[in-house]
């Protein structure tokens, strides 16, 4: 093989045909309210830790729907529960995060 001094650029396209949503559905099984999220971003805007470490519950839920590894993000959660105060869809966000965490640790 020849080294031409450059490599094929990696595509950032999300291919839904290949997305693995098993984790999302495992979470939804325990915490069905996750499906009600409309990605308004209230949780992220209210988040205590997000501005300092990138935690965003909206992006966590979106990431689960797109099959990405959200562990680095949820590790930034301090479980203060502020997000549950603002969620207009009444999602028990604190419980949701614990559920995601628990499933990951299995």
């Amino acid at each position: 093989m020849i080294d031409f001094g450059f490599k094929k650029a990696k595509s950032s396209t999300v291919n839904l045909d290949e997305v693995d949503m098993r984790l999302y559905y495992a979470v939804a099984e325990i915490e069905p309210d996750i499906k009600r999220c409309m990605e308004c971003g209230s949780c992220t805007a209210a988040c205590t830790s997000g501005p300092f470490n990138g935690m965003s519950l909206r992006q966590v839920i979106h990431g689960l729907q797109r099959g990405t590894d959200v562990r680095p993000m949820i590790s930034g959660c301090m479980l203060c529960g502020k997000c549950s105060m603002v969620c207009p869809r009444g999602i028990n966000t604190r419980h949701l995060l614990l559920t995601i965490s628990r499933i990951y640790s299995k």
Binding site: T13, V14, L16
Partner: peptide, 12 residues
Amino acid sequence: EDTLSGKPLKVS
């Protein structure tokens, strides 16, 4: 575009 993640998206 999956505008909420800022990435292009495709699906069959």
